[in-house]
Every structure is written in C-alpha cells, then in structure tokens.
Write a protein that binds this DNA or RNA. Sequence first.
DNA 1: GATTTCACGTA
DNA 2: CGTACGTGAAATCC
Length: 588
Amino acid sequence: MEAPGESRDAAASLRAAGAGPGSPVAVAWAPDGVGLAHEGTAVWQRGDGVAVVRRVLHELRPRLTWWSAADALPLLSGGVRVPSSWDVAATHRLVAGGSAGHPGTVWAAARGLAAGHLPRTGQLDLLGGLADGQGGHGHDDPVDAHDPVRPDGYLRPDWAETGPPDAVAAAAWARAALEVAAAHRAVLAALPDPRRDPPAPALAELTAWSESAAEVLAVELGETGLPVDRATALALVEERAGPRPADAAEAAATRAARDAEVRDLVRGAADVDLRNPAQVRDLLHRAGIDVPDTRSWRLEPFRTAHPVVDALLRWRKAERVATTYGYAWLDRHVGADGRLRGTWTGCDGAAGRMTASAGLHNLPAELRPAVAAEPGHVLVRADLGQVEPRVLAAVSGDQDLAAATAGPDLYAPVAGRLGCDRATAKIAVLAAMYGQTSGTAGEALAGLERAYPVAMDHLRAADASGRAGRHVRTYGGRLVRMWHLENPEPAAVSARGRFARNAVVQGAAAELFKMWAVTVRAALPPGAQVVLCLHDELLVHAPAAAADEVVALLHECLRRTAARWAAGSGVRLVADVSVVTRWSDAKG
DNA sequence: GATTTCACGTA
DNA sequence: CGTACGTGAAATCC
C-alpha cells in the first residue's frame, strides 16, 4: 500500500487513479484539510476541505464513502448537495446487527478480530508505540505515525475517538474506510436476494445504500428541526399545566393545587404522593379499589366505580404535560427559530427503525396543533397505509396475500376469504404478526393458516428461530440478534419468539419506509425539507406553491421504491397524503 | 451517583 | 394485539 500523497488538485489526482462517475471515493476530515481515497490511492489536501470535496463532486461525480454520516455534516452546513453515499457504520449495523458504529468496533468486526480486546484510548503505548515518537517499550514493530492500523491489527483508538489529527492521517483514515466497505460489500453480495424478480442491484446492497442515505437524513433532521408555533405550544401547555411559574414557590403551589383535586376525593389522603405508585395503590385501596398495579389501562374499568379514578387519570395526563412536555421541554428543545430539535439515529439496535430524542417520536396528540407550517409554507403529511400486512405479503412471497393488497383496504378481501367480518380479520392478521398471548382470535387465526399458509409459515419460521436463539435476517438483510438465555424458561423462550416474529415484519417495514423517505428527500424541490420521520409517517415542510408538486412526488417516490423493493411480489403499497397547516389537521 | 422500576406517550 | 423506542420520578443499590 502506497503512502498517501499530498495533492494540489485532489480531483485530478483521483481521476488519475481511475475515479470517475459512480465510483467510490472515501472522505475523511482533519483540522487542517481533508483526506480522500479511491481504491489503493489516498491523497490529502490542506486548506478548505469542503471546497476540495465540492470540486471533487463536481468534476468526478463519485459516490462518497465515509465512516459515518457525521462526516456529511460539513458538506450539509456548507450548502453542498450530498449525493448518494456509503456509510460504513450503518452497513456494519446492517450486516452484523446491533447499534454499534465506532470505527474501532466496525474495523475489528470486518477483520474478524475479537471485540473483547478492543483497544481504548491511552493504551497505544503498550502495544507498539505512540504517534508522537515516544518509544515502543521494547516492541520490534515500528508504528508509522500515519498508519491507522496498529501492529496487532486493530484500528488506533485515538484517531477513532477524535478523528485523524491532520490531513495526511485523514487520507489513510479514508482508505481504511474503503477497505471496510469492500469487506461489507462481499458479505452483502453473498446474501440471497429474496425477491421473485430481482432487478439490479441486489436487495441487500440496495438496502445498504438506502440505510446510508437514511443516516444522512438523520443528521439533517437533527439540524433542520420540526417547525413549532411557540404561541400555540405555550397555550396548550398552559391549559394543562397552568401558567408558567415565576419561581419555585409558585411552581410548588400549582403542583399542590393539581394534587389536591385528586387527594380531596379520598378521606385521609392529604399526604399521599401521587407520583409514588405504591402510595397511589394504597389510596385506591382506601377508595375500595384493589389493583395489582396502577397503570391506566388497569384503572380504566374503574372510572365509574369512584370519582378518584377519573380524577387520577386526568391528573396523570396533566402531570405528563407539566413534567415531560411543559415549559422546561420547550425551553430546552425549541430554538429561537421555532424549530424543535432532537438527536436522530438512522436505526435502533433491534429491528432497525429510526429513533429520535426530545419527544419527537412520542409527542402527545393533544400537543400536535403546535406543530405548524411557517408563513408561506405548508406541511405535507404522508403515511404508508396498512404497511405491516402489506410488507408481510412482500417478504413472505405469499401470492394470495399479495392479491389482497390490490385495493385500498387489505382487510376487506381477507375477511371475505375467511368468511368473517372485517374487524375480526384485522385482529387475526395482527395477532399472527405479533404473536398473540391473550384474546380470542382463535377461529379466524385458524382460517388464516388455511388461506395464507405461505405468509403464516414465514412468521412461524421466524418465531421458531427466535425460540431456538438463532439470529434472523430481515428481508433487506439486517441481522437481528437473539440473546442468550441462562435459564430458558418457557415465558422467556416465547418472548424471544415473539420478538423475532415481530422483527421480520417491523424491520422490513422500516427498510421500506427509509427507502421511500430518502427517495423523497433526494427529489424535493428547493425550499422543501423532510422535518419528521415517524416509522410509517413522513412530514414535509414545503413552500405553499410547491404543495401539489410534493404531493405528487410522495406518491411517485413510493411507486419507484416499491418497484425495486417489492419487485415481482405483486404487492401494492399505498400512501395517504394530505396538505395541512397544522400536523393535527391531518387525519391520523 | 448510577441503575432499576413504574408509568406513559408514539408507531 | 404485540414489539420497539425515549422520558421523568421515585426507589434501590452501591
């Protein structure tokens, strides 16, 4: 491997090395410049790294590779249109499962090195030497100050922690990312394509591209934020939690008044701490209500038994807003520009859904009127209709279930086939996908087995795999790991079965959704941005004049995504799209 | 001070 | 009709 070379024109150097349209070029940033790599060639250039990459993109039209989508941030901030990219961390999560993404972990996994021996920062001197020239403590292997790999094969932890120290190191760092990407491609290429009629590229590779783009979208969502009408938000909070307290004493008084509405309904309950479940249970007991715990679904049937139950449940709702979604929450997460910002991940540790902090994914419906388009703009809200049963039809290859996706409502034809009503059919399908433990879907469930044996076998196979502790792979190739059970009690074994059964459906649905979302993102007109991803729902903030265009785009992007993702399955995927001013205006 | 339990919001 | 996630408060464990 050649040492990285300095370049005055990185684009020309990369072109000389064979880079061109669509070819992989890795990027790594350093404080003093940028490193770039194509195949075995690594170059570095000092100065404005963003300008260098902008020029490389313009002249070569390559596909970028990076250790993680955090490397997209300088480009996004610099207003550079980020093209399709390959995210080494995201692809690691796809091929290996889990939520890891640190370069050291990813490198070790790709090289087959034991994760238990991963070096940490500060240990480098024990294993061969330091970059600053302090000795090797008797070891024979000299450590190249610009080699990202240590003599023992692991990646140097100091660079992984803080990034390469300079542009020379960044070039080698970029080349190392390319090496991992090549290893991942080989793993993905060996996975079978589950589609009946697979067009190129193979589904697992397509998924890797999509997941990579989803990571960029996650970074972008964290920057963009969700538009919030602060006045409405404050009004909604005030209705539920009272006026904003001026000081701690006032806050305590408001709280005490709220507590009193519940305590006053039961004799001798003046000192009960309503935030303490054990004390609440005692209070209910004094009111003649005996419950094993105080969860709201358990208390619901007792709403009419004693007024304290209704008061308590209403208190809980108000308390939720006051503590979790109150003034402190608005102060912490809504910026001066009226954008609610949280931290996004492109995939969680389990089946691969996106996650978001700052309450973005669990905002109570009653606060949704506060999510509003800015002046001159609209919110285009779109969600995938009945996505999980449609996904089940696609991933299992069940032609009869696929036939049921032809219309807008999948459950009607299923009910016809089963000879039951629609509501029963819906419960049966959901019970099959999620592995019911209670309730009475019995007869309809047996009907499903007869009518759609291919889909039901697919679910049963996943369930059996989970019970046995064998990992499963989703349709797009994501490894979903099963955990070891010290003492495999039946309850734990069947919980693992339900987890696996759910993961193959939920995980595939997440892959489909992300592919749709990133296709939409790449096609949006100027001024329009994706502002929220919610598992099967997309929210786009767009100039009012572009509303119709965005609506058409959401449908068209789903058509294009389905043509690749569900090629040959005969499954129809549908989106419900509406143009609104406030999120709450859309039907849910 | 860190971890666990309970509770509850979203899909 | 089950899974997943993030959150806050109180209890629990050092």
